[in-house]
């Protein structure tokens, strides 16, 4: 499940510019920062579990 979520976020990063298309605020900077931070958190959860093996 965690693997799928990380992969989904990576794919989302490729389509996000087109979801935000036409936006003229700073939404892109906020969205991409949030996306990167969320990926980092999920990756760390996955890696910490892997490290305990």
């Amino acid at each position: 499940m965690l693997k799928i979520a990380i992969l989904a976020l990576a794919i989302l990063s490729l389509v996000l510019p087109f979801i935000l298309s036409g936006d003229r605020t700073l939404a892109t900077i906020v969205s991409y920062t949030a996306l990167a931070l969320l990926t980092m958190v999920l990756a760390q959860v996955y890696l910490r579990r892997w490290a305990r093996k």
Binding site: A10, S13, L16, T28, I29, Y32, A43, Y46
Partner: peptide, 24 residues
């Protein structure tokens, strides 16, 4: 403009995903 950020953060997100899922 800000599309450059989207391009570079996409790289970062994919790299983190690769390091977690394949790099291990």
């Amino acid at each position: 403009g800000v599309g450059a950020l989207a391009f570079e953060v996409s790289y970062l997100v994919f790299t983190v995903a690769i390091l977690a899922l394949i790099g291990t």
